[in-house]
Design a protein around this nucleic acid. Structure first.
Lengths: 240, 240
DNA sequence: GGTCAACATTGGCATAGACCAATGCCGTTG
DNA sequence: CAACGGCATTGGTCTATGCCAATGTTGACC
């Protein structure tokens, strides 16, 4: 109420957060309050409530049935599939890829990063945040976490450009195993700011965990690609 | 209750089609009429116009700038990437995959299919339309086109289950090269009906072109996966 | 006991209008 | 001429409200 920044975020987005709070701990299938009830509770209109709920439905967090109600959605199914790299092969199409460094620092790992990198909670990890561009247009927001601290990482990265090139050539870290997760999400305020898209735009969110030959995690990355401008094309030679 | 299907399509969806018509032939960047103008022209409210336009924006067909206007968006960028198969590896996770046959017939190829399969326009192609399910839940709508006509295809497919298994084991067609395109889209009436999702829900749309060792197209497929329930996970062992 | 019609409830669609925020134009002003 | 300030235009958010469509329950009726 007091902060002016609150005015920056639309009401329906704040309401989204409120509803997410309501959902915490509820089992899938549990009905949440009706749209009319939420409108009254949060002193807003049903239209605004519907805008908030619609996005949560689009994200797969809620479901709704006309005449019945709105309920907590079951968790996503996971589909396994083989694929390989993610590096800058835009060049093979004659496109000009680039990246902007937003931040690069060493920090204490949070719970999520710890879990993925197999690092103790609070121990140092390197955090690399970049914007990926193609033909000068921002197409993806990427945050990579690496275990520990790499000496002279910033200058080495600036020289080589490619993260994988630096890891291999300078630090002798070879990636032997990669696991990608691809799913859709909707753009929030950060994505809007960094990618120049609009609230609620669909995103392709890719989480990548890379390991070395010993199976030790080397990198964990979260990439958000603009769904409206992006298209993956992949080729492979082999059976089935 | 046979068919009053007339007013089944909502007004904002019809308006979407209208606006798409307006856009035809316009260069990227060209401004379309303002929301207020469209509301008047089509005798509707600005709210309805905004719902239609918002979906077109989410699909990447339009862009808009506050204080300036709404314009035709530039075409999507394409990113090349390597990956492999798409077949039923859900089992590796202990999930139960299944598919429902919606239709299977031989028809004259349309322009789009001709282009991809390298078949003359109007020549016979086999069209296979299925719903993919995991754990009994519909997750994807898939239409596959194969060049020509395959004898006893229906019964062979029923026996084997897997399309690739039939092609290989019965017809001796081996797939040597595959090209996938992944992008986001929003659910339209067909997707809503077949997948039980709601209008405007985000989808992962995959187009696949498979070739044999000689480079001849063997299969062209369009798959629409529910973005709210689906997640790809891929593993691979190898460099970068 | 089973059937069916009526009704209340809930989400789905649409209207009309208000005010805010960003943009761009234009005229005034220094 | 350049810089600034107003102002109209356009999209962004929100309100208040109405009716439709699907669902589920209740209760009369056979």
């Amino acid at each position: 109420m007091s902060s002016d920044a609150a005015q920056a975020t639309p009401k329906y987005y704040l309401l989204k957060t409120e509803v997410l709070g309501l959902m915490a701990g509820l089992h899938p299938g549990t009905l949440i309050p009706t749209e009319r009830a939420l409108a009254e509770k949060y002193a807003t209109s049903r239209t605004t409530v519907r805008q908030a709920i619609s996005e949560l439905v689009a994200e797969g967090k809620l479901g709704r049935i006309q005449g019945h109600g709105t309920f907590v959605a079951p968790p996503k199914v996971t589909h396994v599939r083989q694929l390989t790299s993610f590096s800058d092969d835009a060049r093979t199409q004659g496109l000009r890829p680039d990246s902007t460094l937003l931040s690069l620092n060493v920090m204490g790992s949070d719970a999520e990063v710890s879990a993925h990198l197999g690092v103790d909670y609070g121990k140092p990890v390197t955090r690399l945040e970049r914007i990926r561009l193609i033909e000068g247009e921002p197409l993806a927001h990427e945050i990579a976490w690496l275990p520990g601290k790499l000496p002279r990482f910033k200058s080495n990265l600036a020289k080589a450009g490619s993260l994988y090139a630096v890891l291999t050539e300078v630090y002798g870290i070879r990636i032997a195993d990669v696991e990608d997760t691809v799913e859709t999400a909707l753009a929030g305020p950060d994505d809007v700011r960094l990618l120049g898209i609009e609230m609620g735009a669909p995103l392709l969110v890719v989480h990548r965990l890379a390991r070395d030959a010993s199976g030790a995690p080397v990198e964990w990355t979260r990439s958000a690609f603009r769904g409206d401008r992006f298209r993956f094309v992949s080729r492979v030679k082999s059976g089935i």
